[in-house]
Design a protein around this nucleic acid. Structure first.
Length: 527
DNA sequence: GAGTTTGAAACT
DNA sequence: CAGTTTCAAACTC
């Protein structure tokens, strides 16, 4: 049982797990008490924020069709009754015999608590410009730790209640699929449950991720196929092969014949050259351009480094297509421009993603911002020492004439000072962030810092609601600060931290706003 | 888009 | 457990 939980925490696991992985960064920002905990690296913070934004949008994206909450399987345990006669009656006896047995289901199914209902599509939030054809096939995916777009199945005969169905196999309801006679829906929950039980009876690991990270796995993967493939004709170099599809080399667990999917295989290398622009690599590139590449560094080095998401750089399938690497002019990783010829000839997704932040945020901006944070910190030190000095002087003169400042009031005053400090430096931020003319404006009007903060906080609330229901960044930052201050850290440190965090939030607010505006512009231009 | 190939899942 | 069938995705034309 704990195996499945462990597997859920691995990076290169099933699609469901990948989806969860995307939240890890952001979840890491809030501890169990909901206190804000910022990761160390600014870029990591930016990524988390951007991911949170993407997630929040998807959560609120209108469903294509009315559909039941996807996770209802976890939310209720329907009374076990035979609604649908099983195809194989002989399997019913053992199944009925284990009624009380807690089923081992895929990570997504196994949670006993009721999760927030999730719409189905949102597994690949950053890939929003896919072509309808691509979506129909639903095959945008990666074989590594990056999120994978939920496939849309086309099942006809399995009623989507067998592992043939990818939706069912990954523990999600069908929604928007092209399947017929689908029972993988909430209204057929009883049947679905029966089928799950039946499959688990046969194979308790059936719903577990097939790919598990392993410290002892292939050197270039850190992951291995739990069961191994059984390929005969594909040489394990086509997506028929589960290992290949998962972007891992075959292991000794495989029973494949004529395997060419091993480390150092010439065929494998040649294959990746030939299929240099396979969809996995391209989507990988696209996703990473949106995430890692949010900070544009138009150097060749960074361009080569952008395809790193828990895998090493020699992982060919996830690298940029060779043709791209050698023929394309250097450009920002954010500038994933449509590459029509490649896409057409090499079987790529017909569209590509270009970050709305492209051209807005450069590495130098981040560097400048870090410098700014240092200044803010120093400013906090000065402000606090001056305040103390004034307090001391006043106390010496006549303590009785000085209105008693409660800790709350003092906190408010510090907060106000900090906010004023933020506002005063707003122009500097605009200089940092708003390369394009109309950044920070909406409908021709500039957005006030308050509006920007609200925009940010609104998204925070939307996203955090699913993760830490009672969390708001501001209040919890303060809570955290207060908590820290009561545990012996110096007030100076607390004040510095608070100001720095507030500055950073302000920075993120503007970054998000700029991205949103740019995105709107791009969408309008596309229309 | 239709037909073929492929290998996992299901079944015997 | 091995062989066969079923199935849906991947692939080809």
């Amino acid at each position: 049982m704990e195996q499945s939980e462990t597997a859920a925490g691995t990076v290169a696991a099933a699609p469901v797990v990948r989806q969860l992985d995307f939240t890890v960064n952001f979840k890491a920002m809030a501890n169990a008490n909901g206190n804000l905990i910022l990761p160390e690296h600014p870029q990591a913070q930016l990524q988390s924020k951007l991911l949170a934004l993407a997630q929040s949008r998807l959560v609120h994206a209108p469903a294509k069709s009315p559909s039941p909450p996807r996770m209802a399987a976890q939310t209720k345990l329907p009374p076990r009754k035979m609604v649908m006669p099983p195809k194989s009656p002989q399997r019913e006896l053992p199944q009925m015999a284990r009624q009380e047995k807690s089923p081992v289901i895929a990570p997504r199914l196994a949670h006993p608590v009721k999760p927030a209902p999730l719409p189905k599509p949102p597994l690949q939030p950053l890939l929003k410009t896919e072509s309808p054809k691509t979506r129909e096939r639903g095959n945008l995916e990666q074989g590594d730790g990056t999120p994978k777009k939920q496939k849309l199945c086309n099942c006809k005969n399995s009623r989507c209640l067998k592992l043939y169905c990818e939706c069912f196999a990954t523990g999600v309801y069908c929604d928007g699929c092209n399947c017929t006679n689908c029972y993988n829906k909430i209204e057929h929950e009883a049947d679905r449950k029966e089928s799950i039980d039946m499959i688990l009876e046969r194979n308790p690991n059936a719903f577990r991720p097939k790919i598990a990270s392993s410290p002892h796995g292939p050197a270039d993967r850190g992951a291995e196929h739990k069961k191994g493939c059984n390929c005969k004709k594909s040489g394990c170099l086509k997506r028929y092969c589960e290992c290949f599809q998962a972007n891992i080399v075959c292991s000794d667990k495989c029973k494949c014949m004529d395997c060419k999917n091993f480390e150092g295989s010439e065929e494998r290398k040649a294959h990746f050259h030939q299929y240099s622009a396979n969809s996995m690599a391209f989507i990988q590139q696209t996703a990473n351009a949106a995430i890692n590449g949010a900070i544009g560094t138009p150097s060749k080095k960074s361009r080569n480094q952008q395809i790193v998401f828990g895998v090493e750089s020699n992982k060919q399938p996830n690298q940029l297509p060779q043709s791209h690497k050698e023929t394309d002019p250097p450009r920002s990783p954010l500038s994933v421009h449509p590459s029509k010829p490649d896409a057409a000839t090499l079987g790529l997704s017909k569209s590509s993603y270009r970050s709305p932040l492209s051209g807005i945020l450069q590495l130098q901006h981040v560097n400048d911002f870090c410098t700014l944070l240092v200044e803010v910190s120093a400013e906090a030190a000065r402000s606090l020492s001056e305040e103390r000095e004034m307090m001391n002087n006043s106390t010496d003169l006549n303590a009785a004439e000085i209105p008693v400042v409660s800790s709350d009031e003092k906190e408010d005053r510090n907060q106000q000072n900090a906010m004023e400090s933020c506002v005063n430096q707003d122009n500097r931020d605009r200089t940092l962030l708003c390369v394009s003319d109309d950044c920070g404006v909406q409908d021709g009007r500039p957005l006030s810092p308050g509006t920007l903060a609200l925009m940010c906080d609104e998204r925070d609330m939307i996203f955090m609601a699913a993760n830490a229901p009672s969390t708001t960044t501001e209040s919890n930052t303060r809570m955290n600060v207060m908590s820290v201050s009561t545990h012996g850290l110096s007030p100076l440190y607390v004040e510095q931290e608070r100001l720095v965090l507030m500055r950073f939030r302000s920075f993120l607010n503007k970054l998000i706003t700029c991205g949103s505006i740019e995105e709107t512009k791009i969408e309008q231009a596309a229309d």
